[in-house]
Design a protein around this nucleic acid. Sequence first.
DNA 1: CAGAAAAACCGAAACGTTTCGGTTTTGAAA
DNA 2: TTTCAAAACCGAAACGTTTCGGTTTTTCTG
Lengths: 333, 333
Amino acid sequence: MAATIKDIANRTGLGLATISSYLNGGNVREKNRQKIEAAIKELNFEVNEVARGLKTNRTHTIGVVIPELNNIFCTEIITGMEDILRKKGYATIVCDCRTDKKLEREAVEFLYRKRVDGIINMPVDSTGAHLKQFEIAKKPIVIIDRKLPQIACDSVLVDNRDAAKKAVDILINNGHRHIGLITGPEEIYTAKERYNGYETALSEAGIQIDPGLVVHSDYTIRGAVSGVEKLLDAHPEVTALFAANYEMTMGTMIVLNERGISIPEQMSVIGFDNREFARALHPTLTIITQPTEAIAAQVAETILDRLEQGEQTAPKELYLKTEVMVGKSVKNI
Amino acid sequence: MAATIKDIANRTGLGLATISSYLNGGNVREKNRQKIEAAIKELNFEVNEVARGLKTNRTHTIGVVIPELNNIFCTEIITGMEDILRKKGYATIVCDCRTDKKLEREAVEFLYRKRVDGIINMPVDSTGAHLKQFEIAKKPIVIIDRKLPQIACDSVLVDNRDAAKKAVDILINNGHRHIGLITGPEEIYTAKERYNGYETALSEAGIQIDPGLVVHSDYTIRGAVSGVEKLLDAHPEVTALFAANYEMTMGTMIVLNERGISIPEQMSVIGFDNREFARALHPTLTIITQPTEAIAAQVAETILDRLEQGEQTAPKELYLKTEVMVGKSVKNI
DNA sequence: CAGAAAAACCGAAACGTTTCGGTTTTGAAA
DNA sequence: TTTCAAAACCGAAACGTTTCGGTTTTTCTG
């Protein structure tokens, strides 16, 4: 049905290899170039990427495995990456693993079978074992939001420790002493880093850390809701909360809202990500924001570099900074 | 490097065709089955989907083109679909076209070149011209949120007219007479339908329609912000607003918030989608919600049916209903 | 204009499957 | 034990490219 390279060869009287060479940017005599281009237009030929992939072992496809598609931080990064990668002819297959190690491994295997050229992962499994097959096959791996020392891969990270410290510093400077932290699972790198920032800020200020004020939840809205409820019940002395990702910020707001706790009079709050959400709340929320576009661009460029150059240079780590967006949700006491 | 079917054939002493037949569910003598399975395990063979694709003309890949990945309605649907499709061995390539017809066409062409087996689209271009090549190639097309009479395809839709009517009815029943509508571009089907619902509700109640109260914006947060600002400036008589998608609901809240307009005392509001957002606001928001999971499931099943059965039955249309989630953002006046 | 170097061209083989048509094996019935 | 249909098996060809090694054509040099 569809025209093949052979049809072009016949039509132009040239050889197969010549057409192939033309298609891949090789040199062709001017008059032949014209003939080929005419034939291509006439038969509206398009190279069959599948056949090409069989020969070259490249599918021009990149796999992306993330913990949650319904997480605005993830989708913003994906949007940005997809844009850049598509412009370079790469398709992106996104798999959502629901923050589940087993599903994550399955997703990676799925993508491996699909023979993607490389993989981008915001890992749930901190050992990186699931990525081993990509490492063995020498296919590039780019990690977001974590370091995987056991795997040869590049990482793009945000300075989460600093981010959390900035947030907690603000609360301390406003006189708060009993500050609740709602963060992610202990085994997740970003959550640990954010906890470290919290700890550092408190100890620098000479405030004793009360482990009861730290909620290790699961980065979901629902998780935050139950975590915050328990925290408030057990520790009425808390005057400020810092929620360490967007979903948990939302969960925190839901609880405060449903309990009729007014912000910032009865509770000061600092959230994470999603500027629009922060602006839509009343009073507006003070938040820490991550540079999602920059992350996306870095990740895309990093994997493209590995893919095109294929250089076996040492793994790179790239750190990006967060920002504070000041709202009216912190009270000076 | 990787084992091929040939290696399995050699190792087992069987023929190529037999191995292939086994791999595709054909019958094999018990002792051969064991040999084959042993060989597969030993060489850890995996069929090369690219080579298979070249022969069968199937890539087991489905393209998805949506207007915005940063739109929670879209991501929820994608999450659901991806889940179902992946379980059936299909990969999903998602392209975000930024609500731009040209980019949409490019995305579809990109996917066509990638030889996806079928396409799922929430179309920006209402003519459907961009999908023509899929129709010609007889590759299944499933449309979300719109009908494309000019293209042979299945559609999964939500009863948007009814959704909007329900919302406006609530406002009318609470005594509102000057109701602002913030909806999408006139040429977008869902926006038109939602407008129709608004119109129907008002005229059934015998209320004259004031075109000045209708904002046709672009379904984005930013668009809603400027639209609502203009609306409020020009029409101080408005006592209630209905925002007809999630992003515009957020935009509406941002403006009301920044202007210090209290809800529901000074303005009643009904929004759209995202239950968590509605719950996180104070007071909680009354919203219309769409059954995203059901939509996702329907879309996935529809395309799988077409793909597996390949039956040339007539295009199907499937309608799903919305729900109202009652909050405290509507005042009885 | 001859000769040589460079550029352009060429067909065959290969990538790893599926499928076609035909052959062998199996085992149940006679 | 023979017969024969059904089941299992088989290799070659094909899918549409790229690439290898070698041939032809062009262009440049003296």
